[in-house]
């Protein structure tokens, strides 16, 4: 046994044991770890946001513009939003401050402005992104072509059969989740096929997730036995 002398290893051990104490029952040690996690995670996010967004994107351009205006006077370049030093960065700051109008009676509605701008831009932006990044590739991957069976084009007999199974599975799954029409006749056949794939898929996802969590647990035990106690190498 070779006990660690690193303070951070001891901190990690105490916190790991605090969290694992929940296996017995909910207790103050677990809640301590839980609250510490939330506090530190938020502080990290705040620091990261301050050093990576507020200072370089807002504060430095504004301070630079103030300095240049003091030395050379106000020039049109100081109002160019793309310039390194410009006064216009104050506008997003002011729009951001509108979030706090939520607490000011009478102008509460102004909180909708930053929300609307943020939501609007990213709503518009993700529509083509979803088509390009998800719908088209997923459909392309599902369509069975001659190439799926052709060894010269990276396919083969088994690959072709698997491609057909995937196609049947996708159509079946979509049919199973199609609730606009009663599951009768052909739709019932499709839905019944779909549920088979869905159950196998859920089972596989469950098994995969359990194993991912188990590997995390193994990582923590390796940390305790190797880094802290030094009983394994």
């Amino acid at each position: 046994m070779n006990l660690s002398t690193d303070i951070w290893v001891w901190v990690g051990v105490v916190l790991t044991l605090c969290v694992y104490s929940f296996l017995y029952k909910d207790n103050p040690f677990y809640r301590f770890g839980e609250h510490l996690f939330v506090g530190v995670a938020n502080a990290f996010t705040l620091s990261f946001m301050y050093h990576r967004i507020i200072v370089p994107i807002m504060w430095r351009p504004f301070a630079g513009a103030v300095r240049i205006a003091g030395e050379e006077g106000i020039t049109p370049e100081l109002f160019n939003p793309m310039a390194e030093a410009n006064f216009l960065v104050i506008i997003p700051g002011l729009i951001g401050c509108m979030y706090f109008t939520r607490f000011i009676p009478g102008i509460t509605w102004m909180v909708r402005i930053p929300i609307g701008m943020f939501m609007g831009y990213y709503t518009g932006r993700v529509v083509p992104a979803y088509f390009e990044g998800s719908i088209f590739p997923q459909m392309k991957g599902t369509i069975v072509t001659q190439a799926s069976f052709d060894p010269a084009m990276g396919g083969g007999l088994m690959a072709g059969i698997f491609a057909v199974i995937i196609l049947i599975g996708v159509i079946g799954t979509l049919t199973y989740f199609y609730f606009s029409k009663e599951h009768k006749g052909l739709i019932k056949v499709g839905a019944n096929t779909g549920i088979v794939f869905v159950m196998v898929g859920f089972g596989a996802s469950f098994g995969f997730t359990v194993m991912a969590r188990v590997s995390l647990a193994i990582g923590r035990f390796v940390f305790l036995l190797r880094d802290w106690l030094g009983v394994i190498s």
Binding site: I166, V196, G201, A204
Partner: peptide, 16 residues
Amino acid sequence: IMEVPNTAAKRGIELG
């Protein structure tokens, strides 16, 4: 299982 039936089910659900 991961590559064929799981892909089919996930793809159907994801498309939906």
